[in-house]
Design a protein around this nucleic acid. Structure first.
Lengths: 178, 178, 178, 178
DNA sequence: TATGAATGAGTGTTCATTCAT
DNA sequence: GATGAATGAACACTCATTCAT
């Protein structure tokens, strides 16, 4: 892939992600192309249809989340803190587009997706397990379910790390002794 | 209003609500009409445009919720239990259509809406206040905010009373001593 | 025909005529009915379709014009003055609805129409002939054509007796010696 | 603008103008597109809505009229003759669509319109003024009003240079001495 | 007989997608 | 490879007309 083509592709993905966040999921392909400064034709050369574009945005977002999650894991932070950091990152990324990221059932098109979701979940589960060992995260909920829970709380459009909802979820997950 | 017209109106509202829940917010007016067994014209006679239909569904749902909430309040149940009952009812009603029940800012068309939202909130706040007095609901969060929180947790499409999310929110709201 | 039915009929015709003049030819049947204070059903009982209503308005207008023309003819006014009076009356009646009143070709539905048009034309032609004899109307244009001419000038929507157009037409028709 | 796009645009404008003249102002967009041999989408790409199309037709017609008027002015013809030539051209162009050429008040959408109307009026006024100086056009009517008058006579659907109406208007405008 | 609710074909318009330039 | 013009199916909405109450 030529350098300029790759640059166009990235440009389209990030522009589209921004537009979707700002203006809802009904933005037209024409408008996305215009905002990215390319013609529709170019957009369609990179993404055969609208679905493919949404998938690409999701893959991109998950990839960034995974990179971040791994970076966090390599640092010396507690499991609980790691959980918080990753969750904050979630609220900055357009994860809500692909309806249920954790389920992964929504977008069967791209082969990477399940793998990515798996990898992100693994990262989260590892943090959760650590937090449970550290005694800061409730032990009566399986780590797997904790992740599902956090996903629902955080993968809504407009979710924020300091939302009352997110705050209370974290409170609800806090081990009572902590 | 003639009896058959009223019957049609109700039929349309409930059919549309079901369709919106089952198939998302993009169902076409034509399809709604067909599902209700009427012509598009009839649909448009009752609701001048799509917005008006969504509003009617919301008003209807809120009205049912309010009726239920009042019935609950008249029975001899604890504040905490009242909260749970009302929340369960929420998950059975198409409240998510009107974006945010508490804000009520979304649908300025119908005059009843703000009043209904107010009334429902009053009912919820009363239950919450009772629960706080009973020592089952955290006292460090204002009742008003508790309501907002519950609304977010429960007014999502597909929310269920036994969702992990809802469960954890309730856990997070439980007074630590209880 | 019952008295109230007749009253309804007249009410509908005049109301519709006014509405057509005020708001253009696209007013809906529903709106006409509402303005007349009856249901659409009643409107359709009197006039089987929209065309029939327009025809009725035209017939009504022509009838009034004819009545007026005959009244004028029975008075002691010059041919030229009679022409002016009848023309003024034209501008007060909704004649423009039926596109070309003189031609009569437009509305083949009602049997009265050609006869009425004929009668009105006869009245006008008689006035024109007198005016030509009196030496006030150009003799080099056949009376028949004079009438056609006046019709065009005066059967436009919004025509007025003191329009520049109407004024100049009369000037152009004035015998040069007069 | 690409060559084929420009060709399509012109094709649409002229086809639509013809259709409007032949079949009245209610022709459907679908039909216009079909007659022009393009899809509706193409029509709407060029003209965002029906109004815009009518405006474009008017602008086009006025532009042609202006070109013709200027060409006439540059030739050695009398003011009266210039008036007649321009008026004949009017009857060949779809000017009646834009309700009143002189007022120009009708179509505020396109910026060119008032300017074009102005320019055409200027051309006509200049011819009228010359005709008044030449003694062929009545001097007791201001040139401005003469133009308004001619406009009404000639901007009717179906107006023709040899209409009795137009003929008589010209007769009415002729200086009595001429 | 009067009413107004119901009907559904038809209109303007949008937008994902294709394809000539 | 990039562009944006062309396409047409699909949608929201209107309104003349019919028919149950």
């Amino acid at each position: 892939m030529r350098a300029d083509a790759r640059r166009n592709r990235e440009l389209i993905v990030t522009t589209a992600a921004d537009l979707f966040v700002e203006r809802g999921p009904e933005v037209s392909m024409e408008e996305i192309a215009r905002a990215a400064g390319v013609g529709v034709g170019t957009l369609y050369r990179h993404f055969p249809d609208r679905r493919a574009l949404v998938e690409a945005i999701s893959v991109d977002a998950l990839q960034r989340l995974l990179d971040y999650g791994r970076a966090v894991s390599e640092q010396d932070v507690s499991g609980w803190e790691a959980l918080r950091l990753i969750v904050r990152r979630c609220t900055e990324l357009p994860l809500a587009l692909a309806t249920s990221v954790t389920g992964g059932s929504a977008l069967p098109g791209r082969a990477e997706l399940p793998g990515l979701v798996q990898a992100v979940n693994a990262e989260l589960e590892w943090a959760a397990a650590r937090a449970q060992r550290e005694g800061t995260l409730r032990r009566d909920i399986p780590a797997r379910e904790v992740i599902a829970l956090i996903s629902v709380a955080v993968c809504r459009p407009g979710a924020r790390i300091d939302d009352p909802l997110v705050r209370v979820v974290f409170d609800g997950l806090r081990a009572t002794g902590a």
